[in-house]
Design a protein around this nucleic acid. Structure first.
Lengths: 238, 238
DNA sequence: AGTAAAAAAACGAACGATCGTTATATTTTT
DNA sequence: AAAAATATAACGATCGTTCGTTTTTTTACT
C-alpha cells in the first residue's frame, strides 16, 4: 500500500470534500453560489485548523480568523452561525471523512490479516494527509457542546469497533490468538493516535509514516499471530 | 506491585508536595506564611485542574477560578503573577513529580525485565492517582510560552529516555530482542498515555488500572522476549 | 492576659482591552 | 437594477489585571 495513492485520492477530492461540506451545512451557510462557498470554506477551515492547532480553538479570536482567512469578521458569519457552530462543523466533517475512507478501504477484504493491516495503513496514512484535522478533532472534542460531544464519542467508538470486528473475524478464522480483542483494538487505536498527536517527535527522529506503519503492523501481527508454545518446543528437544 | 501503596505514598505527601510547590515558586508568590500558602495553593490548583480539564485552561476565567477556589480574584494574584504563570507552575510541578517518582521507584533495580515492569506500573499508577495533573499537562502544553514549552518537551523526552535506557540494558544483557528501542519506548509511552487520555473509555468498559497494567506489561514483555526465530512473514500484500 | 499598632491577607469595584456578534453600508456579481 | 457577497464600525459582555480598602492575623508592650 502506497501513501501517495491516498495522498492523491484526498488531494484530488479536496474540492469534492468541501462541496459536501457546503451542502451538508447549507442551513447555516448564507452563501448561495457553490464555487464561492467552497473557495472560502477552504480558506476559513484551513485558517481555523492552523490557528486552533497552534494555540487552541477557544484562544482563537474571530479577528485572528478574519486576518488569517482573508475575510472580514462580518463575512465569516455568512459561513457559520456562531463560533461553536464552526467548531461543530469541522469536527463533524473530520470524523465523517475518517470513518468513510476507512470503511471504504477495508470493505470486501476477506482475509482478516490483510484487512487489519489495511485498516492500520489507511488510518495512519489518512491521519498523515489530514493531520491538522485529526489533531484538531482530538484536541477540541471536550470543547463541544454536550450533544455534539456525544456524537463525536460515538463515532470514535465506531472506529474502534471496526478494529474489534476485524480481530474477532480473525479469531473465528483461527488466524489470530484468543486475546482480549477490545484491549488489542484499544492498543491499536492508541498507537494510531500517537502518530498524529506526537508528530513533532517522530519528525524530529526522522521516522517517516511508512516506517511507523510497518512497525505498528509488525507489533500487532506478532501479538495476534498463532504460534506454537515455545516452552513445549524447548522441552521436546531436551 | 500495589496501587494502594502508591496511593498512600502520594496522598500522605500531598502537603509536602504543595510545600515544595510553595517554596519553589516563592518569588512569584506574595504570601509569607507557609500554612496559609499551602492551604490556598491546594484550593487554587485543584480548582484550576477541575475547570481546565473540563473546558480548557484558556476558556477558564479568573472569575470562574475565584468562584471554584473560594478566593477573590484579587487574592488569587497573591499566589501567581499572571494566568500564564499559573499554567507554568502547575505544568512544571506535574512533570517534576512524574520524573522524580518514576526515577526513585526504578532506581537500584538490576534486572531489566523487572525494571521495565516497575517503570510501567509506576507510571500507570501515578497517572491514575494524579490523573487531573497528567491530563492537564498533556492538554495544555501547547498553550505554554515558548521557553516553558521547550522545557516541558525536554522533560517528556527525558521520561521516554528512561524507557529507552531500560530496553538498552535488557538488550545488552541478552534478555530483550534486538528491536528498535526508541520505537518500543515510544510505543510504551503512547500506551501509558492512553490510560489517562481515554480514562472515560476504560472506565466505561470497567477496566481497572491493574488489568490495563497487566495487559500492557504483557504486550511489551512478549514483544521484547527472546524467542526462537520464526520464519519471515510474507509482507507482499503491504 | 489584654490591647493597640503593625503586618499579612483577602476583598471587590473598576480599568482598559478584547471578546463574539450584529446591523448597516458598500462593493461585487448576476 | 437586483441580488449576492463582503466590509466596516459598533454593541454589550466578558476578559485579565490592578488598586485602594477592609478584614484577619501577628507582634509588641504593659
Amino acid at each position: 500500500m502506497d501513501i501517495d495513492a491516498l495522498k492523491d485520492l484526498v488531494s484530488v477530492s479536496k474540492k469534492d470534500m468541501y462541496r459536501n461540506f457546503f451542502h451538508r451545512h447549507k442551513k447555516q451557510i448564507r452563501i448561495k453560489k457553490e464555487h464561492v462557498a467552497v473557495r472560502n470554506l477552504i480558506k476559513i477551515t484551513e485558517a481555523t485548523l492552523m490557528l486552533s492547532n497552534r494555540k487552541g480553538f477557544s484562544a482563537m479570536s474571530m479577528r485572528d480568523l478574519s486576518a488569517a482567512s482573508g475575510l472580514s469578521t462580518g463575512a465569516l458569519y455568512s459561513y457559520f452561525s456562531s463560533k461553536d457552530d464552526l467548531l461543530d462543523m469541522i469536527q463533524q466533517e473530520s470524523l465523517r471523512v475518517a470513518i468513510r475512507v476507512l470503511s471504504a478501504r477495508i470493505d470486501g477484504i476477506r482475509d482478516p490479516q490483510l484487512k487489519l493491516a489495511q485498516a492500520i495503513y489507511t488510518h495512519l496514512y489518512l491521519s498523515e494527509v489530514m493531520h491538522p484535522w485529526f489533531y484538531f478533532s482530538f484536541m477540541e472534542t471536550k470543547n463541544l457542546k454536550k450533544r455534539a460531544r456525544r456524537k463525536a464519542i460515538e463515532i470514535e467508538l465506531r472506529i474502534e469497533k471496526i478494529f474489534i470486528d476485524i480481530i474477532a473475524e480473525g479469531q473465528e478464522a483461527g488466524v489470530f490468538r484468543d486475546v482480549d480483542k477490545e484491549m488489542v483494538a484499544g492498543m491499536i487505536k492508541a498507537l494510531l493516535q500517537d502518530w498524529y498527536l506526537k508528530k513533532w517527535k517522530y519528525g524530529q527522529r526522522r521516522i517517516p509514516v511508512e516506517a511507523y506503519a510497518e512497525f505498528l503492523a509488525g507489533v500487532v501481527e506478532s501479538y495476534l499471530r498463532v504460534t506454537v508454545k515455545t516452552e513445549q518446543v524447548d522441552k521436546s528437544w531436551v
